[in-house]
Design a protein around this nucleic acid. Structure first.
Length: 414
RNA sequence: CGGGCUGUCGUAUACCGGUAGUACGUCUGUUUUGGGAACAGAUAGACUGGGUUCGAUUCCCAGCAGCCCGACCA
């Protein structure tokens, strides 16, 4: 992508109404645009990051046999009445059409996925099943805050698993714990993300959250570094510590943001819809369920919060909008044509490159923009680099670069 | 949802019951070009509605919006 054609621009100042680091940087860099409190549009660069995260999640969900679907955002009121959540779930957006008929905007999809599955599965031979989707969710947060960390409209991956026995569920649940760890590792925050014992909300007594340590976090967790697990403050008591085999003395308190959560639903949602199966003896049983969520935008914002420095964003290679940020310095014809050639070669080599071919900007401005955008590698073409017969490559996280050849560059970032 | 704060160009601010100004940004042009350069020109603003007043951006009321604390949060 030629930066001169990119319609978004960077900003020197942060918007007045944003305090959180993730929103400030993402807006200044032109990744997102704020529409209203807790509602953001994703612009070209931001969408690329979101898609990268989406693909990592999709790959991992597919690995455990997840079947991707896309369920409706509009949800029938009757289904919500069946589970008793029409009036109980205060984050539920209720809308009505011209005839006054009420419906819900999906904040989660148990009320949709269960009736769908009921249509297709009824024998023990059909199990286990796991379906997932990646879709916008709507929740009436009374207080949206922290930029894209807590929105009213946000992209989420939600998976639902269906089982014939508690044992089968638990096997799958354990697998999902590992899958989640893999996802956060691949997204670049594995080293600061802990599986955290937490409240089960309306589902069960306990659940497992995946908490990433960052000062912008809303939750307080207690981490046992050795065992690499944590306990959410909300459930921290002697009983829980004993159950997990944790020593209170060893726990370290941290602020953290919940990037994922997995639940044992048991029959809470299968029962109201009578989702059942017939076992090998011809007996009917209610299906057991689990659900597994990850907020994509929240994960993106968390990465910004956790990894950015005072110059701007620092993207992990796995989710960066581009692999290389190629800068052409100066207006010199030789530099511009050389930079163009390098750009074409990189594109041909299948490398994702953002080419700062803008004219009329000083070197300092281009460097500052590159730092703000946070692309992992910066490749500079200038009179100086040409004299040295190469391209100056620098990591976003490093101070100094080194001059290398085009072939080396391609090898390096591929 | 309870509490608090705030609404003047994109940002930061000034003045003021009587023509809304400055700086930065942004845009155009020229000259520059290895860490946000210089000059010239241009652009753009009183949240909305009511009230008081000869006159309201300013005072009063209501609404709306944004932010912060708390509660809430598969």
């Amino acid at each position: 992508m030629r930066q001169s054609k990119l319609f978004t621009k960077t900003r020197k100042e942060a918007p007045a109404d944003e305090v959180s680091k993730n929103a400030e940087l993402l807006i200044r860099a032109g990744f997102v645009h704020k529409e209203m409190a807790g509602v953001y549009s994703y612009l070209p660069l931001g969408l690329r990051v979101l898609k990268k995260i989406e693909n990592i999640i999709r790959e991992e969900m597919d690995k455990v046999g997840g079947q991707e679907v896309l369920m409706s955002t509009f949800q029938p009121k009757e289904n919500w009445e069946k589970t008793g959540r029409w009036n109980d779930l205060d984050v539920l957006y209720k809308v009505s059409d011209a005839s006054g008929h009420e419906l819900a905007l999906g904040p989660t999809h148990e009320e949709i996925v269960v009736p769908i599955l009921k249509n297709y599965i009824s024998s023990y031979k059909d199990f286990p099943v796991a379906v997932y989707q990646i879709q916008n969710k709507f929740r009436m947060e009374l207080r949206s805050k922290s930029g894209i960390l807590r929105g009213r409209e946000f992209m989420m991956k939600d998976m639902y698993s269906f089982h014939t026995s508690q044992e089968d569920f638990e096997n799958f649940y354990e697998k999902m714990k590992e899958v989640y760890k893999t996802i956060f590792k691949r997204s670049g925050v594995g080293h600061i993300t802990y599986m955290t014992f937490a409240s089960g909300g309306t589902f069960s007594k306990y659940s497992h959250e995946f908490q990433t340590i960052t000062s912008a976090g809303e939750d307080t967790i207690y981490v046992d570094e050795e065992q690499a697990i944590a306990v959410n403050k909300e459930v921290l008591d002697g009983e829980v510590l004993a159950q997990l085999g944790l020593n209170k003395e060893k726990l370290v308190e941290h602020k953290a943001i919940e990037v994922g959560n997995i639940f044992d639903l048991k029959t809470k949602y299968s029962a109201p819809f009578d989702l059942s199966f017939t076992d090998d003896k011809g007996e009917k049983h209610t299906v057991l369920m689990g659900c597994y969520g990850i907020g994509l935008g929240r994960l993106m914002g968390t990465v910004v919060e956790a990894l950015a420095d005072d110059k701007g964003i620092i993207w992990p290679e796995s989710i960066a909008p581009y692999a290389v940020h190629l800068l052409a310095l100066g207006e010199d014809e030789a530099v511009l044509s050389e930079a163009n050639k390098i750009y074409e070669s990189l594109v041909k080599a299948g490398i994702e490159v953002l080419f700062d071919d803008r004219t009329g900007l000083s070197a300092g401005e281009k460097f500052s923009d590159a730092d703000l955008l946070g692309i992992p590698f910066r490749a500079v073409v200038s009179a100086r680099s040409i004299k040295e017969n190469g391209i100056e490559l620098k990591k976003r996280t490093e101070e100094k670069g080194k001059v290398i050849t085009l072939d080396e560059l391609i090898k390096h970032v591929r």
